[in-house]
Design a binder for these strands. Structure first.
Length: 303
DNA sequence: GTTGAGCGTT
């Protein structure tokens, strides 16, 4: 079935290097990157059409075309360009390309019946468009639903439609909204440099390993470190070679192994507007947003 | 074993 090694080169005309595959026939992007630092994927020339084709990449795992790598030579992709050395602007724009102009967010679903399951949610919301994540928040001890959950769609249009109306789910009216955390982030200045190469990955589940985090985040840029505190505390740190990659990811919700993790600055504890305003019951998002903006009118050297 | 406004085990 699967070959032990596949042939990979920086360029179609260069001498290929043999790279080992996994037992299931897939190839880890990290294995490719071990030989070609900064690699973010593979492509190959389709012998029939003579066009270049991309190799499927899912969460750091490269999948053989038609279940067989064959003896083709696979060419390494680098972020944005074929250039091994990307400049700083390219690093940031490569990430921005990935998230698009109108990015989708997790939506909070309020008012769920206690009995509603994740499958129920998926079945219901799939009638609006492709669903990539659903969660029902539960009591960790009892497993009982807390009556709210989250959903994420592929298409921004689907998200807009879902927000615009009420939803009858299992006999109760429910509301879908942007979570408060997102409302504040909307006003975050995306070009504000962070100067840190390290990101905080919140809402991790215990089954996500350092290897999986590394393989997942490699698609955005070269990963130099992954740290998961022990004992388990539901978060991790990932460090990139390039601070602009880290900066561009901040505020994102990314889906790893079906769970929505939240990316933020790695050292926000003392300077977190979100937490500051969450101390006020009846807090005003617009007030928070104004405060947020004033933060960015000052040079960040004193922060 | 209950409940019905909220905000996701930093």
């Amino acid at each position: 079935m699967a070959e032990l090694y596949i042939r990979v080169a920086e360029d179609e005309n260069e001498e290929p290097m043999e790279i080992p595959s996994e037992d299931d026939g897939t190839v880890l992007l990290s294995t490719v990157a071990a030989q070609f630092p900064g690699a973010c994927g593979l492509r190959y020339r389709n012998p029939v059409s003579q066009c270049m084709r991309g190799v499927r990449l899912v969460e750091g795992i490269l999948h053989a075309p038609e279940n067989d790598w064959g003896s083709l030579v696979y060419v390494v992709n680098y972020p944005k360009d074929n250039k091994r050395k990307m400049d700083e602007m390219d690093a940031a724009s490569a990430v921005k390309m990935k998230r698009g102009i109108e990015k989708t967010s997790d939506l909070i679903i309020l008012g769920l019946p206690w009995k509603t399951s994740e499958q129920d949610l998926k079945d219901y919301f799939a009638t609006f468009g492709e669903v990539i994540m659903v969660q029902v928040k539960r009591d960790v001890k009892t497993g009982n639903s807390k009556g709210f959950g989250f959903v994420r769609f592929t298409e921004y249009e689907t998200q807009s439609k879902v927000i615009s109306q009420r939803h009858m789910i299992d006999g109760r009216w429910c509301d879908c909204k942007l979570p408060n955390s997102k409302v504040l982030e909307q006003f975050r200045c995306p070009d504000e440099p962070m100067r840190s190469r390290k990101i905080f990955v919140g809402r991790c589940t215990e089954d996500i390993t350092t290897d999986e985090l590394r393989q997942f985040f490699m698609q955005y840029g070269e990963v130099t470190d992954v740290f998961i505190p022990k004992p388990f505390r539901a978060f991790a740190f990932v460090t990139f070679a390039d601070d602009q990659v880290a900066s561009a990811l901040c505020g994102e919700d990314l889906i790893i192994k079906g769970v929505s993790v939240h990316i933020s600055n790695a050292e926000p504890k003392h300077n977190n507007i979100n937490q500051f305003f969450s101390n006020f019951p009846g807090r005003s998002p617009s007030l928070a947003a104004m405060f947020d903006r004033t933060q960015y009118q000052y040079p960040s050297s004193h922060v």
